[in-house]
Design a protein around this nucleic acid. Structure first.
Lengths: 134, 134
DNA sequence: ATACGAGTTAAAGTGCGCTTTAAGTCAAGC
DNA sequence: GCTTGACTTAAAGCGCACTTTAACTCGTAT
């Protein structure tokens, strides 16, 4: 792996579009790389940085949260401590989402078991469903 | 409940913004109401229609799916049959989402237990996490 | 008369994570 | 000398469900 790869090569290696890499740079997730006649040249450490970004994204962090993880803490903060701090809040969010999904499932399975022929007739059945919502 | 309510009253009763009601009308979820000197006047059946729409939205259906439920089936199709058809696909989507969330939880809990002092040193730990991803 | 509150419209804005587009630069191969 | 392919930028577009804005029209109370 050469230590001065152009953006297309880095992108292919990471399974990303070049535009995504430029976007990450503008968003402050990637340091500004060296240039050769105007074009970005990336070193080997970029691949690792991209893998970390992907991991954070896969874990559900937004771009802003990922930037916080990478550069939003006092420099002495260990990666483990950074991750713990952010993961705690994210897990709470996921818990909320899980509950939302559970409620949706309940509604999908319990609604409109009425024998109404037209939607306009379903009013009464819906009152029952709304009870299940709480 | 008067049978010719203006939009603000309907909105307040339903817990929605007037703009949302106009949006539903434009999106084909609500029939075009009568007008009095240019202003919309809603009958009592609108409240029931809005409750049905809210139920569909709470169950995770998009506006387009909700429109399908309300008016995208052969007229003779019962509400129960309509709901069943749409709910089946939606439940499959929710299953996917649940799996996505479970994977995020795993990543949040299992990543960055390394003792690295700087993010640049975490490469090795990340390889382990990526194993957990599969 | 006039100010107020509620209604009307079309069009643009929001948030998120990119992608797409348009117009241009550059090095290499023929 | 000319094409090709990969790169550059800023700005706009996408999907979704609305909200917000701007400019206007009503009927009613003062």
């Amino acid at each position: 792996m050469p230590s001065a790869m152009p953006i297309g090569q880095v992108a292919r290696a990471a399974g990303l579009a070049p535009s995504a890499i430029r976007y990450y740079e503008k968003a402050g997730l990637l340091p500004k790389p060296a240039r050769q006649s105007g074009q970005r040249r990336y070193g080997a450490q970029t691949a690792a940085r991209l893998r970390i970004i992907q991991l954070a994204r896969d874990a559900g962090f937004t771009i802003a949260e990922t930037r916080t993880f990478l550069s939003g803490f006092p420099p002495a903060t260990t990666p483990a401590a950074r991750w713990r701090a952010l993961a705690e809040r994210k897990l709470a969010e996921l818990e909320q989402q899980s509950q939302r999904i559970a409620r949706m499932k309940t509604l999908l399975e319990s609604s409109f078991h009425c024998g109404c022929l037209r939607i306009e007739d379903c009013e009464r059945a819906i009152a029952a469903c709304e009870t299940a919502r709480k």
